[in-house]
């Protein structure tokens, strides 16, 4: 059964069709990438799937439930989690606390027990803390745990967001340009991390401008241009598609710059 089914999704901003009639699906453990030139509508598509925007047309199915227009926190409860292209870090919190918030669903309890610091509340916080440290180690940030998040480099913040998203133990993980701003070594680490997470059964929807990474790890690729799906298929098929070459790969030089910008 499909974990995620996107059917005929469309959204307009004023006169602009940012996304128009896009559909595809995703199974557990699969890595599906969404590619396309700048402004193609990839982030907008992510925002619709994750409940940030409500689409003007189409449906989103999670397993077999229609979740179109659900608030992100309800989608989180159903096993969806994401990172952001334009970093959404909790600035005034430490790196560790940022990841601990990812455990909110599992480790939050009655407000009164939190106010009174009852043993149950403190135990929940301790568990969140040790679980968060494991995840920080997984993305290579264990030594930055106690630092203010705002003191980290861009690449480190990208990995922090991945750790926070993984804390939800998601069935479906949306990653919007996880390797942007990362050097070659960091990019390779993220590459391996994504593959590992998928092996554990999490479905991954990926937006990434690093074509080497996309071609290497994706099971399936969806290509967007001007908000419309112009092609989809496995990496080999997509990279041979003349429309894709024209719309996207023809401008790869520019996008390669973007990926490192």
């Amino acid at each position: 059964m499909n974990l995620l089914t996107v059917e005929g999704i469309g959204i307009r901003f004023g006169g602009l069709h940012a996304v128009r009639d896009v559909g595809f699906s995703l199974k557990a453990g699969e890595i599906v990438s969404v590619i396309g030139p700048n402004g193609a509508g990839k982030t907008t598509l992510f925002n619709i799937i994750s409940g940030v925007y409500i689409p003007h047309s189409g449906r989103i199915l999670l397993e077999s439930d229609d979740v179109t227009g659900f608030d992100p926190y309800l989608l989180a409860r159903r096993g969806m989690s994401r990172t952001f292209q334009n970093l959404q870090i909790f600035q005034a919190m430490t790196v560790l606390e940022n990841v601990m918030t990812g455990f909110h669903l599992r480790e939050s309890g009655p407000v009164l027990s939190d106010l009174l610091a009852l043993p149950s509340s403190r135990r929940r916080s301790r568990e969140a803390e040790s679980d968060a440290r494991v995840l920080l180690a997984r993305v290579g940030l264990e030594r930055a745990a106690e630092r203010e998040a705002s003191a980290l480099s861009y690449g480190a913040l990208k990995r922090l967001e991945i750790a926070r998203a993984l804390a939800l133990n998601p069935k479906l993980l949306l990653l919007d340009e996880p390797a942007a701003g990362c050097n070659a070594v960091e990019t390779e680490e993220i590459d391996h991390l994504i593959v590992d997470v998928a092996k554990e059964g999490t479905a991954i929807l990926l937006v990434e401008h690093d074509m080497k990474m996309v071609m290497r790890i994706s099971n399936h690729i969806v290509v967007l241009d001007h908000g419309e799906k112009i092609a989809e298929g496995d990496p080999a098929t997509v990279s041979r598609d003349p429309r894709v070459i024209e719309a996207y790969l023809g401008t790869q030089g520019q996008d390669a710059n973007h990926a490192h910008g």
Partner: peptide, 9 residues
């Protein structure tokens, strides 16, 4: 927005 995506109502 990030708070919502980690499940905070």
């Amino acid at each position: 927005i990030a708070a919502r995506t980690v499940g905070v109502d």
